[in-house]
Nucleic acid binder design. Structure first.
Lengths: 125, 125
DNA sequence: TCCTCATCTGCGTGGATCTTCAGATAACGT
DNA sequence: ACGTTATCTGAAGATCCACGCAGATGAGGA
């Protein structure tokens, strides 16, 4: 990792210095930031995004339905779902030979909603 | 891109088929999904995450302050900020030779908050 | 004008990640 | 028990992106 000079730079004894120290203390450490970033990164993929919004719409879908809905090979969908499930973004339920997936909790739904609002696409439904 | 058999798979004429067709119609298309995923991916990086949470705490910081707060070389911070600004995640304001950055809007703040809640770290402050 | 400081930009490399193929596993109907 | 269908898994190849260095730009102060 690169070098960061401890007390160099523009914070040279002015009031900013103390304030920055406070901020620095409150910045998430590496492991927490890793967790947070990991969640966002999980959502940061076109394929996964499509699948998640499909689940947001449908509530619950099995692998082959997802495959048909987002036009992606089933094996790929399966791989993707494993990732999402491992991180607690989705839950699954087995019914016979099918496995149904759904969004795990309200937080995930909220993230998807807020993001769509930000992007400007008012989902009326 | 892989092959997806149009009417193959488990949706073979059952009621699911119609429902899946509806879902499929409501799934974001490639460009919209790209935009949505792009926003999430932007947040999906440890360094950027730290910077954004620092801004969430501080409200406004210049490049060198951010550099000190998250312990990252200024050049890297600058590059990162350019990315974030290009996507409308942060705004900036010039004051003399310094450039101050802040989170662009409430949506971004909400995303950060919701994500932190989901992760389970109740930020009391 | 010259010099310093804060910030920005271009480029090359390394590492992580996505994608897909091919085969394995599990569940059901007959 | 057998074959079929749905899902899962492992590995390899290709792609993408973050990172840091080195130099350029812009703004102030003397």
């Amino acid at each position: 990792m690169g070098r960061v000079l401890p007390l160099d730079g523009c914070v040279g004894g002015d009031p900013q210095s103390q304030r920055v120290a406070l901020v620095r203390a409150s910045v998430p450490d590496d492991v927490e930031a890793g967790t947070l970033a990991g969640l966002f990164r999980l959502l940061g993929d076109v394929r996964r995004t499509k699948i998640l919004y499909a689940l947001l719409e449908a509530g619950e879908l099995c692998v082959c339905d997802i495959s048909a809905a987002v036009q992606v090979p089933e094996a790929s969908v399966s791989q993707t779902m494993r990732l999402l499930r491992a991180s607690g973004v989705v839950d699954n339920r087995r019914e016979g030979r099918r496995v149904y997936y759904r969004l795990a909790d309200a937080h995930v739904r909220m993230l998807l909603d807020v993001c769509r609002e930000h992007t400007g696409h008012e989902g009326s439904r």
